[in-house]
Amino acid sequence: MTKISELKDFSECSTTYILAVNDTINVINGKWKAAIISSLFFGKKRYGEIEKDIPKINSRMLSKELRDLEANGIVVRKVYDTIPVGVEYELTESGHAFRKVLDVMLEWGLEHRKNVIGKTI
């Protein structure tokens, strides 16, 4: 994983900077992706377990978002030859590395809520 200190100086807006930010946004684009990734930080889970972790997500949307995350290399889907067929989802190395991004987002969100709304969760 590239460290910010290893990158060239971004004192000016560069194409590399814009592309990297857009790549990040494309991976988490949507209401549910960050929640799904967060659920999987705690280990492999079956579809129903993820669904229980995320209130208000419908089955169709969870399926779509899991496929998108799999296509983006964040989640891996493992199918087991059992009856009924067993399916588990887990984070890839890239998915686990995304925790740093979510931790910063959490920190910023809590501070922003406190400053703008005037209360904490």
Rank of each mutant, 00 (worst) to 15 (best):
M1I: 00
L7T: 07
K8H: 15
K8Y: 09
S11T: 13
C13S: 06
S14H: 15
T15R: 14
Y17Q: 12
I18N: 00
I18E: 07
D23C: 04
T24R: 13
T24Q: 09
I25M: 10
I25N: 13
V27A: 08
A34G: 12
A34Y: 00
A35F: 13
I36A: 03
S39P: 10
F41Y: 11
G43E: 14
R46W: 07
Y47A: 05
E49N: 07
I50G: 11
I57L: 02
S59R: 12
S59W: 01
S59A: 15
M61D: 13
S63G: 04
K64Q: 08
L66M: 04
L66C: 13
D68R: 13
E70Y: 00
E70N: 09
R77A: 10
Y80M: 14
P84W: 06
P84K: 03
E88K: 13
T92K: 04
E93D: 06
S94G: 11
G95A: 08
A97V: 06
K100P: 00
V101N: 01
D103T: 06
V104K: 15
V104R: 15
L106I: 01
E107L: 02
W108P: 00
G109L: 07
G109K: 10
E111A: 12
K114M: 01
V116A: 08
T120I: 06
